[in-house]
Simulated assay, not measured.
Amino acid sequence: MILPFDFQTDRYLILDFTVNNPDLTAVDLTDTSVFTDYVFGKLQRNGAVVGVGGYNEHRVIYRRSPHFNQTEEPRCVHLGIDLWAVAGTPVFAPLDGVVHSFQDNNHFGDYGPTIILEHGWEEKPLYSLYGHLSRPSLRGLHVGMPVKTGQKIAEIGPFPENGDWPPHLHFQLMTDLLGHTGDFPGVCSLTDRERFLEICPNPNRFLQIPGL
């Protein structure tokens, strides 16, 4: 369990942030309040408590931020699963592990407060990343701090402190951190897609959300 929802019984909504979603042409994605109203309006209209989706999704929403457009080829392929829920929703560790690193990636469109845990999985290292947290979530942490399965490790943050996004958790798995600490690309370019997907397995192996 990552969030306090049961995806077998609680109602959730798969959100589409690709060019195939015509709603996005009418939403000012650069205005986080408008973007938030759109996301949570859809959840409310569908009676859902959480929005989900995004792994390996070719998204258009990253055009809102220069953070994803700093190179010749923009980054647009999402490498984790997003869980859209109200700020303050608790986040729990899916496995035993230790705190690998953490930091506040404080740029518009970035992760904001971020925690990376290190686990052992099938006798190999596995890392899990939690982005768009609240700033208090980073208090009291230290590198190497033990974490138990099901332990509360953080809360979903409000905007703008969460990187200026509608409240949600970015949950991502990595088998190799490529030397990063407190941060790791959550979005890659189309050219780099295959390389990053090889080291970023589908987080739904832990979430077990039907339909993803």
Rank of each mutant, 00 (worst) to 15 (best):
T9A: 08
I2F: 01
R135L: 08
Y111H: 09
H100F: 08
L197D: 10
D31F: 04
Y111I: 06
E155N: 07
M145Q: 15
V50L: 06
L24Y: 07
G186T: 03
F40S: 14
H168R: 01
S189D: 04
L173N: 04
N105P: 02
D192M: 03
L207R: 14
N105D: 10
P90H: 10
G131D: 14
Q151D: 10
S101K: 13
S137D: 04
F206V: 02
T149W: 05
N21V: 01
G182P: 13
D192C: 02
D23L: 05
N204C: 02
V187K: 05
L197Y: 09
D10H: 00
I61G: 06
P210Y: 07
G144K: 02
L95F: 10
L133V: 12
T25M: 15
N106W: 01
I115W: 10
F171N: 07
T149I: 04
T114V: 13
M145E: 14
N204T: 02
L24D: 11
F40D: 15
A48S: 09
V98Q: 14
P90N: 12
G112K: 13
Y111S: 15
L29M: 15
A26I: 00
G112V: 03
S33L: 13
T9F: 00
Q8K: 08
C200M: 07
F40R: 14
V39C: 15
N162C: 03
F206S: 00
T191Y: 09
D176S: 07
